[in-house]
Nucleic acid binder design. Structure first.
Lengths: 207, 207
DNA sequence: ATAAATACCATACATTTGTATGGTAAATTA
DNA sequence: TAATTTACCATACAAATGTATGGTATTTAT
């Protein structure tokens, strides 16, 4: 019943989704017009009318930023994955996204958190498996016993954090791996954040 | 450094968070004023100034709905859990929330999805463990092999979905459990949705 | 070939929105 | 006691915002 979007309409819809997943705010007509170089809001206005007519959004009349994504749950917002981590064999954190995961709209990421994709089974005793996404918040104070993400020599690990009087210990859940002892002011060690959650998409068959 | 909020300021901040986690839109001054019965926007305006002064929000000047939650990552939005599910011993789905989970702001739930808390280890072969939260979307078409949530005689189960010519089979991941065979038009069977994700908070020590 | 949709521009208007300023009364703090 | 904060009200104003209407040129569909 709902026709297909044109290229431009799709681009505008993408911009709306992008803004909503970023700042959480849906753009105004003026912001859309500015983004696409229109000299009037009316051009954006008419595009929105067309997009709404095709059923992809719903506008609340006279409400500023009142664009709703009708098909919100069918939209999956791609989020960059900044690297892969493992407990046993640390893998590189790449400067840019190495991959993207399609999180459903449940995943409005706070802008300063990021995702790491777990590779390998060294975290399996913590019920974290290869392919799982850990959500890392760099602005939280690590507490003893919690899982943290850390960078050692440009490689990332996810381990359990323990602060001792003169060092930091990173424990693996798997007893096969020895705890890492980080002397204070170890130059190439950097704590990147606290693991606040684990997310796993169920869009592919497991097992 | 940032002082404590007063009761009213806290209520307004809660309203902002509630709106943002609901529609994704931050309220305008007028909407706050209406919600709290103020006759002017200026009252809401001054409360926002106070809240901002205490460091809980940041307002983007002249930008409509431009309230940012400064401490966004420290905010955890309580989401209702509508029931508990298990594969082996189905547990009741309660009409109202039996519990709430604090999802981080990563979890802007689509309004028509809901959460179920997993109890028991019957899903452990699918890497879903007791205490995990499954996110169920009732508006998705189930595909063979995917996990779905279903209600049987007022009890909920999470199982893998298989549609056969004349019946529906719900397979447990655990081979100890026999598949459930649902004849068509079984009155007390209702598919409630497709499991789109699994979330686990890491705020407590695991293992 | 004719109609419809698309993609822009321009202008005008009523509301909405954020902001600024000033005031009052009660509660809290110094 | 005096000063500050809190919690409201009222008014005014510029800018932002959504909306309506009309126009032109191109592309697409019938």
């Amino acid at each position: 019943m709902s026709k297909q979007l044109t290229k431009i309409q799709k681009a505008i819809l993408d911009f709306i989704i992008e803004m909503k997943s970023g700042s959480g705010l849906t753009p105004t007509l003026a912001e859309i017009a500015k983004k696409f170089g229109y000299k009037n809001r009316s051009t954006a206005q008419q595009h929105l009318q067309a997009i709404e007519k095709k059923g992809f959004i719903k506008r609340s009349p006279k409400l500023s930023r009142g664009i709703e994504l009708t098909l919100e749950d069918k939209f999956f917002i791609p989020r960059p994955i900044l690297g892969e981590v493992a407990a046993g064999n640390p893998l590189t954190i790449y400067p840019d996204a190495i991959d993207t995961i399609d999180l459903p709209t449940i995943a409005h990421m706070p802008r300063d958190s990021f995702l790491l994709k777990v590779k390998g089974d060294s975290l399996k005793d913590a019920y974290i498996f290869s392919g799982d996404i850990v959500i890392v918040n760099p602005n939280m104070e690590p507490v003893n016993g919690r899982f943290v993400a850390a960078v050692l020599d440009d490689a990332a690990v996810v381990k359990r954090f323990f602060k001792k009087p003169d060092c930091i210990e990173l424990h693996s859940e798997n007893p096969e791996y020895e705890p890492m002892i980080i002397e204070k002011e170890y130059p190439r060690f950097q704590l990147v954040g606290v693991v606040v959650g684990v997310y796993r998409t169920m869009d592919k068959k497991v097992g």
